[in-house]
Simulated scan of single mutants.
Amino acid sequence: METGNRSCGTDFSLVGLFQDGHMDTFLFTLIAILFAVAFIGNITLVLLIRLDCRLHTPMYFLLSQLSIIDMMYISTTVPKVAANFLSDTKAISFLGCAVQAFVFLTLGGSEALLLGFMSYDRYIAICRPLHYPVLMSRKICCSMVAGAWSSSSINAFMHTVYVFQLPFCGSRMVNHFFCEVPSLLPLVCEDTSQYEHTVLVSGLVILLLPFLAILASYARVLVVVLQMGSGKGQSRAVSTCSSHLTVASLFYVTGLSTYTQPHSLHSPGRDKVVAVLYSIVTLVLNPFIYSLRNKEVMGALRRQMG
C-alpha cells in the first residue's frame, strides 16, 4: 500500500488515439469540428425547447436534459484529447485523471438512465395516453432526472475512490485517450479480478437494465402502433421511437462491450474505437437524430428564425 501512496503524486501519460504523430494536426481539426458540431447542436436544441412554449412537454423536458448531459459529457474528454494532439507530453495529473474518470462515469450513467426514462415516456404517451398527464407530471419528470444524476454520481464516486487508492506501478502510461476505469486497471500492481466483478455488476445495472427496459417498452409500443387505424399516427409514433432506439442502441451496445468484459479480453485498440462511438459519435448524432426527424422541433426552429 505504500507504493500506492507514493503513486498518488505521480502524473499519468495518455497514449491517445494513435501513437503515430503524423496525423496529429488532421485529428486535432477533426476532433475540434466534431466538438463544435455537438456543442452547437445540443445547445440549439436546449434553447429551442426553452423558448418555444409548444415544446414545454415532458418528452422535450427530458430531451433538453439529455442535451445538457451531452454537452457536459463531450466537454469532459474532447478538449483534453484535442490538446494532446498538439502536445508532446500528453500528461494528466493524478487528481485530474481521477476527476475526469468520476465526471465521465457520472455523465455516462446519467445518460444511460435518462434514455431509459425517455422510453418510458413514449410508452406512456402511446400505450396509456389518458394517464399521461398523471404518470408524466412535472414532479415525476424532475424526480427522474434527479434520480439519474444521484444514482450515477454515487456509483461513479465509489468506483473512482476505490480505483485511485490502488497502487499504480510501471510506466504510468494509460493506453487510451482519456482516463477511464477499464484502461487504468492494467497499471495496478494488485490483482483486480474481484473488483472487475463489481464493474460487471455496475455495467449490467446502469447499462443493461435500462436497455432491456427500452426494448420491452418499444416492443409494446410497436404492438399498439400496428393496431392504430391512422397511418399518420403510425408514421409519427414510429419516427419518434425509431430515432430514440437508434441512439440508445449505439450507446448501450458500445458501453456494454467495454464495461461488461473481463480485463483479459480487452484490446486497447478496440477499446479506443468503441470509446469514440459512445463518448463522441453518439453525442454528435443525438441532437440531429432528435431534431431533423422531429417535425415539432423543426417547426420550432423555423418559428424562432422568423
Rank of each mutant, 00 (worst) to 15 (best):
Ser291Pro: 03
Ala216Met: 11
Gln100Ala: 02
Leu30Arg: 03
Leu27Glu: 11
Ser183Val: 04
Thr254Asp: 02
Pro262Lys: 12
Ser183Pro: 07
Arg122Cys: 07
Ala300Asp: 10
Ser67Met: 04
Val163Tyr: 07
Ser230Lys: 02
Cys97Val: 02
Gln304Leu: 13
Ile74Thr: 08
Cys97Gly: 09
Ile124Thr: 14
His197Glu: 14
Tyr132Val: 01
Met118Cys: 13
Leu30Glu: 09
Leu113Trp: 10
Pro268Phe: 05
Leu265Gln: 13
Thr160Asp: 05
Gln194Phe: 13
Cys189Val: 04
Arg172Asp: 03
Val253His: 00
Ala148Leu: 05
Tyr120Met: 09
Ser183Tyr: 02
His159Val: 13
Cys97Leu: 04
Leu107Thr: 11
Pro186Ile: 11
Asn175Gln: 14
Ala300Met: 09
Val163Ala: 02
Ser249Met: 14
Phe177Cys: 08
Pro58Trp: 05
Leu250Thr: 01
Leu250Met: 15
Met305Tyr: 11
Gln100Trp: 03
Val224His: 08
Ala213Glu: 10
Leu166Glu: 09
Asp88Phe: 12
Val145Gly: 01
Ala213Asn: 13
Arg54Gly: 15
Ala98Cys: 08
Met59Val: 08
Tyr73Ile: 00
Asp52Gly: 00
Leu107Tyr: 09
Ile31Ala: 14
Ser257Pro: 00
Thr260Gln: 06
Tyr218Asn: 11
Glu111Met: 11
Lys232His: 09
Cys141Trp: 04
Leu185Ser: 01
Val297Glu: 10
Asn294Arg: 07
Gly116Glu: 06
Phe288Val: 04
His244Glu: 06
Thr77Glu: 07
Leu184Arg: 11
Ser151Glu: 02
Thr10Met: 14
Gly96Leu: 04
Thr258Glu: 08
Phe28Gly: 06
Arg302Thr: 07
Cys142Val: 10
Asp191Val: 06
Ser279Leu: 09
Leu187Val: 01
Glu190Lys: 10
Ala156Trp: 07
Phe168His: 08
Pro167Asn: 13
Ile289Gln: 01
Met144Thr: 00
Trp149Tyr: 15
Leu45His: 08
Gln227Pro: 00
Ala32Pro: 00
Phe28Arg: 04
Asp271Ile: 02
Leu45Tyr: 05
Leu285Ala: 11
Arg302Leu: 12
Asn84Ala: 11
Leu283Ala: 11
Ser13Tyr: 15
Arg138Ser: 08
Leu209Ile: 15
Glu196Lys: 08
Val46Gly: 01
Pro129Ala: 10
Gly229His: 09
His244Asn: 05
Ile140His: 08
Cys127Gln: 01
Phe178Thr: 06
Leu204Asp: 01
Arg6Asp: 12
Ala38Trp: 05
Arg6Thr: 02
Leu95Ile: 14
Asn286Met: 12
Ser264Thr: 13
Thr246Leu: 15
Tyr132Thr: 06
Ser143Gln: 14
Val81Ala: 15
Pro287Asn: 07
Ser13Glu: 13
Arg172Thr: 00
Asp70Cys: 15
Leu17Gly: 09
Leu226Asn: 15
Ser13Thr: 15
Thr89Ser: 15
Ile33Trp: 09
Leu226Pro: 00
Gly108Leu: 04
